[in-house]
């Protein structure tokens, strides 16, 4: 994935027209390359923040694939989302080590604090809340991530303070 759009975090500031131009460019670049659907979906998700049906249609038409195939791939991989996502993604690790060290308690407390269940996005679109099966930080268990930042040995009482940092 060499596209500079890969890590684009400024979705909200781009107009719909600009997004459409960006995705059209991406499709143009990939349309004759076999097996590029997932690549295009990744980039599209970075442009739009998520992959609603309308975006899937643009990709299906552009790559000359049935919509049901595109949607099949989107719904298969958990990385893709068909709902708008929050500005930040929280991933609580529920791998074995984190689970036994109290990962589940963190999930329960976050559900209370955020007012959404796992998979949901807060009303203010600040956070999308997910769980992960081992993020490779077993020595720091229980761990969680917010975007790319790993929080180690989290306990339920620390959570409020952690979240507060993102409201500055």
């Amino acid at each position: 994935m060499s596209c500079e759009l890969e890590n684009c975090q400024c979705c909200s500031e781009i107009s719909d027209q600009q997004k459409l131009e960006m995705i059209s460019e991406v499709i143009e670049k990939y349309k004759n390359k076999e097996g590029s659907l997932i690549q295009v979906l990744h980039i599209a998700q970075n442009i739009y923040g998520y992959l609603p049906l309308e975006v899937q249609k643009i990709i299906a038409d552009g790559l000359d694939k049935p919509l049901s195939e595109v949607s099949g791939v989107v719904t298969f991989y958990s990385f893709f989302s068909t709902e708008p996502r929050g500005e930040h993604t929280i991933r609580v690790c529920l791998g074995t080590a984190c689970y036994v060290r109290g990962g589940k308690k963190i999930v329960d407390r976050l559900e209370e604090l955020l007012g959404v269940t796992v998979g949901g996005t807060t009303k203010d679109r600040k956070f999308t809340f997910e769980v992960a099966r081992c993020i490779g930080a077993c020595g720091l268990a229980p761990a969680m991530m917010i975007d790319d930042v790993v929080y180690k040995q989290v306990n339920a009482d620390k959570l409020e303070a952690i979240l507060a940092k993102y409201y500055k």
């Binding site: 694939k65 049935p66 919509l67 049901s68 195939e69 949607s71 099949g72 719904t75 298969f76």
Partner: peptide, 8 residues
């Protein structure tokens, strides 16, 4: 191409 596998 109306039918394909959805979800996982």
């Amino acid at each position: 191409g109306v039918l394909n596998a959805q979800n996982r």
